[in-house]
Every structure is written in structure tokens, then in C-alpha cells.
Design a protein around this nucleic acid. Structure first.
Lengths: 153, 153
DNA sequence: CTAATTTCAGTTTAACTGATATCA
DNA sequence: CTGATATCAGTTTAACTGAAATTA
């Protein structure tokens, strides 16, 4: 009645794109998270530092939009980064509702350090793929993400 | 000091494989979840039904291993499926610690219905990719997932 | 007035942990 | 005895929601 007889092919689930994506994202996220944790950092910290370097000075709301982190979590993230001297936060003189968030020198150095950590993590994850395959994977994912209008792409 | 001047390229984050994967997996998961919810089902339900059809009769622990669902969540999932008449659950006469879980006729019919829902969801997600690109994406993800030994691939 | 921003306090949900009872 | 199984109760964590205070 169950006519299995294979023992290797797992059926629909094993080839389902959404499932493969979830699995791959899970592995990649674990590797990245462990790497950052070993360096005493968090995914949120890297996202904020890298976004500040890429886009320059920003308000907290702007950082939330660009990183995809919730405004609420941004508060705690910036408190941690500020406490470590990696960013400066001061009220915007032009619009006193806003905080102006700036990357400090220490923040820039920390970002470079974490860039190394991240590069290693990506490499560890992508190790079974050739350079061409890695590029193609990134391209395909980019097409999907852009098509579905992920806000903070 | 911030030398941005582009306004389009988002820096490191936008091209980072782990981030693209998380974003793509998020979109895909949302589309799949909404499709299943509209059909009155849950991701867990589909996973169990599809695994039962692919591998045949199984114990709850076996289902947990093959689907990746926690043994604990499996209890509630099977209670729901049993209550809807989609699976049968009875004590294994050969090993009375185990429950023998069987797909019923109604379960098989429900699975076919949900297969349609899932196929539509995958198509909606993959719409910007050609057939060749979809196949390549699945292949690349499969290589990654298998290399990293995801238990329930 | 409405709308944007920062902040805090609390909620939701999926995933997981620990403990218990049963049986091989 | 150890080890596997099913079950339940409770925990953890990320992501999110609501509301207050401030300012445009």
C-alpha cells in the first residue's frame, strides 16, 4: 500500500523551493550567528554598522527602514552600540524629534573586523559551490527578492 | 565624509548570500503560509501528510525525524489531523511505545488538494524565474543543504 | 489638527526544553 | 539497568504591537 521501495528520495518536500530556502537560510543564519556571537556581536549590530557606512549618517527611523529592523529593536541595538562607543547618537538640531546616528572611528574599525567574520561565514556556508555558482545563486535570489519588493533590499 | 552619491546600491548587506536567503525564505514562507491558511491548513499539516505519503506508515518519532518537526509539536499536529479524520493513530501492537500513524483516504484527498495549493504558492514565488533558472536554484540549494547535512533533507 | 520620531512595555508565535509515564 | 517513545507543561527568542511623549 505504501510502495516505497526507494529509501532515498524524500518526496515532494525534499525538492520544494520554499522548503529548501528555509533550510538553506537556517543553516546560513546559524553559521553567521555563531560567527558574530564568537566575535561578541549580533546580527543587528552588523546590520546597523554596515548600513551606516553604506548610507552615511541617519536617523533611527531611517536605519529601521534600511535595515528592516523594527524601530523598537533599533532602540536597544543603538543603546548597545553607543555604549560600546561604536556609534554616536545626538538630537538633530534641524528636527528635534530625530536622533542623528553617526559611525565613530571605533565603529568603523569594528565594522571592518566584523566584515572579516561575515566573509568567513559566507565562505563556510558556500563552500560546496564554485565561484560561478555562488554568483548565480546571488543573482537568482536577487531577482526573487527584488521582484517581491522586499522593502529593505 | 559619507561619500554616498549613489542612492541605489545598498552596500554589503544587499548582496550578502545569507541575507538574500533570509529575505527570499521569508517571502516564500509568507506566500506558502498564506496559501495554506486560506485552505485552512498549516505548514506542519502538509509536512506530515506529504511525509506519510512519501514514506508510508510511520511512528510519531519517525515523522518527527523526517519532517524536522519537534516531537512535541508533532503531538498537537497529529491530534489536529486525527480530529479531522486525515490520519489514523493507534498503538503499535509490535512495540507498544509507538503509535502507528496512517494516512486515511480523506488524508490522501486532502494532500492532493494541498499539493495544488503548494504548487500555486511555489509558482507565485518563482514567477520572475525561467524554468531553467528555477531548476538551477533548486539544484544549488540542494547542494548547499546536503553539504551541510540538514537532518531532514 | 495630523504626522513623524523615539522610547518603553507588553504580546505573539515558532521552536525548543524538561519532566513524566510507559514500554523494549 | 539503559534507551526509545508519546505526552504535557513551560521556556526562550525574534519579531512585532500599542501607547506615550515630543516635535514638525
Amino acid at each position: 500500500m505504501s510502495e516505497n521501495g526507494d529509501g532515498e528520495e524524500a518526496g515532494r518536500l525534499a525538492a520544494m523551493p520554499s522548503r529548501l530556502l528555509a533550510q538553506a537560510a537556517g543553516v546560513a543564519g546559524r553559521i553567521v550567528g555563531e560567527g558574530l556571537a564568537a566575535a561578541g556581536a549580533h546580527r543587528y549590530h552588523y546590520a546597523v554598522l554596515a548600513t551606516l557606512e553604506a548610507f552615511g549618517v541617519s536617523s533611527q527611523a531611517g536605519l529601521s527602514r534600511r535595515t528592516g529592523l523594527d524601530r523598537s529593536d533599533m532602540v536597544a541595538t543603538l543603546a548597545a552600540l553607543e555604549g560600546a562607543g561604536l556609534v554616536a547618537r545626538e538630537v538633530d538640531a534641524r528636527d528635534r524629534r530625530r536622533n542623528v546616528v553617526t559611525l565613530t572611528g571605533a565603529g568603523r574599525a569594528r565594522l571592518e573586523e566584523l566584515d572579516g567574520v561575515l566573509a568567513q561565514a559566507q565562505a563556510a556556508f558556500l563552500v560546496p559551490l564554485s565561484a560561478a555558482e555562488r554568483a548565480e545563486l546571488v543573482r537568482l535570489l536577487g531577482v526573487l527578492v527584488r521582484h517581491h519588493g522586499v522593502r529593505w533590499a
